[in-house]
Each structure stands twice: as C-alpha cells, then as structure tokens.
Design a protein around this nucleic acid. Structure first.
Lengths: 143, 143
DNA sequence: TTGAGTGCAAAGTGTTTGCATGATC
DNA sequence: GATCATGCAAACACTTTGCACTCAA
C-alpha cells in the first residue's frame, strides 16, 4: 500500500502499512462472503485482539478511497455496507432469505451503455447489478 | 389501502387508512426524487405537523411489505434507504456528485435471467440495476 | 370494549469524530 | 520533532421498540 493521497491544496501524504492495516487487508482478501464492516472488525480481532473499531472503519474507507476494495450496498439484511477485495467489475446474486451473496458476471453490452449515456446526458462510469432470489439451500428449507 | 395482512397463525387483520398513512402515501406519490425515510418524514410534517417519526417509519415499512412502495438502496450519500412509489420494475441512474437519481429502464432479457438461474440454482425473483456517473449539470461544473 | 394506530422517548445499530498517546520518518 | 496512526469513548445519524393513550369499528 504505497499510495499517495491528495490533501487540501496539493500536499502529498504517504500512507503507512501498519500491522492493523495489513490485518484488515488480509482479512478482506481472505473473505469471499462480502463481509460488513462489523464482520471485518470481528475477524481482524481474532488476529489482532487489541485493535479498535475506529481503526478498522478508517482502514476500510481508506481502502475504498484508494481503490483497493469496493463498498457494496447489496440491500440485504442487515442494511450495512459490505466490502469486497475483488475490485474487478462483477455482479452479485443475493439470497433474500439468508443474505448470502455470490459473485456472478453478466456484462452489459458497451452498446447499451453508450445508448443510455446518449439518451440521458450522464457520463456513466460504472453500474451495479444485483439479482435477488432464494439460494438453493433456502429453497430446500420448508418455507 | 384496504389490505389484509397475515399475522401469526392465520389471523387476518385489517389496515386502516388514517390521516397519517394517507399523508405518507401522498407524499410518496408526489415525490419523484427517491426520498429517504427522513425526507419523507420532513415532507409529511409540513402537511401534518404533529406526526411522529415512528409513525412515518412504520407506515413506510407497511407500504413496502404490502407492495405499495419500493425500498431502494442506491448506494448514494447518505447511505440510507430510499423509497419509491413507482413499483413497476425500473432501474436508476445515480449521479455520484450530487446524488440525484433518475429512472431508466434497461430490461435484461428473460433468456439471460433463465440462464443465470440454471447455472446458479437460485430462484431469481428480481434484480436491481443502478448506473453510476455524473449528471449533465455536474459535468458542466468546474472539476 | 377491543384492538389498531399514534406520539413520545428510550434503546438499538452502525459508523464517525475528538483527542491524548504512541509509532515512524 | 513533525506527522501519521492508534485506541478509547463520546458523538452521531438513522431506525426500531416499549408503552400509555386515543380512536374508530
């Protein structure tokens, strides 16, 4: 994480890779279940028991700001932000019963995006696509 | 709103259309900017000054439960739920600068949804598609 | 006269901020 | 020693809950 951040009027600041930040980064890279910030906090504490919640939250927003992680709003319960170290564009399939979210990829054609930009005047940078339904396990449970 | 709700083991309950509920419904129908619950609360208070926040929140979840409104998680600031009285399936184009959200519709083909369900085993009920970018007004601003 | 609905205030969540301490450059 | 980062606790924003009261069927 040798990143440079702008601050105020062009004062460059170096970010340090502290043990806390390393732990957050590792937890995120090892997690493929789109954890909430609280989930990440809990997991980091197993490695670094004394870590503070604020540090984890600060690190997570740092990672999002610098593009090292994505912040998702999957709309599943609990309605908290979820984080994903997989920063390549991809979509999610969310179970409305248990909240599990799996990665999928259904790219929209460049053509449709261009058309949409033309019609609306928006400069479109990306899109989020979430499918909702019931996962196989929940389907097999009695209602 | 002459709706019936199941409660516990098949006890049917009738919902009443009180002035408070009517006000929330009207505010929602008159709002095309995807207001947060707090926004709705503020607007309802201009019509019904004494209304309580809890009533507005309760009514909003009632409307969502009964299908009279949609709850959106657009991922724009503030990261609060937003509500939409337009319950027909549609997508949103969200400005990352000012947070404005406009309705668009880019239906995915039935075929792609069926394929996705086949491959994942999920029973897909719906999907949410949000485009992110900058609206024309924000593009014309410096920076 | 019963129970649905309300307003208020308190409690809950999830997250951010202020500040003194501590680590690094 | 200046800056960056941490931990703690308090503050914060948003939402839900408990409860006594009201009102309509």
């Amino acid at each position: 994480m040798s990143l440079i951040r702008e601050r105020g009027v062009s004062v460059a600041t170096t970010l340090r890779l502290t043990p806390q930040r390393r732990a957050v980064l590792e937890v995120l890279r090892d997690s493929h279940d789109h954890p909430t910030a609280t989930d990440v906090y809990d997991r980091v504490r197993t490695r670094l028991p004394g870590v503070g919640a604020a540090t984890v939250y600060r690190t997570l927003s740092l990672l999002v700001e610098t593009g090292a992680a994505l912040e998702l709003s999957l709309g599943a319960e609990p309605s908290a932000a979820r984080f994903d170290a997989n920063t390549t564009r991809h979509d999610h399939l969310v179970c409305e019963s248990c909240g599990v979210a799996v990665d999928v990829d259904l790219p929209l054609s460049r053509r449709r995006l261009a058309d949409l930009a033309d019609h609306t005047g928006f400069a479109i940078s990306t899109y989020d696509l979430q499918f909702r339904g019931r996962c196989p396990a929940c389907q097999h449970r009695k209602d």
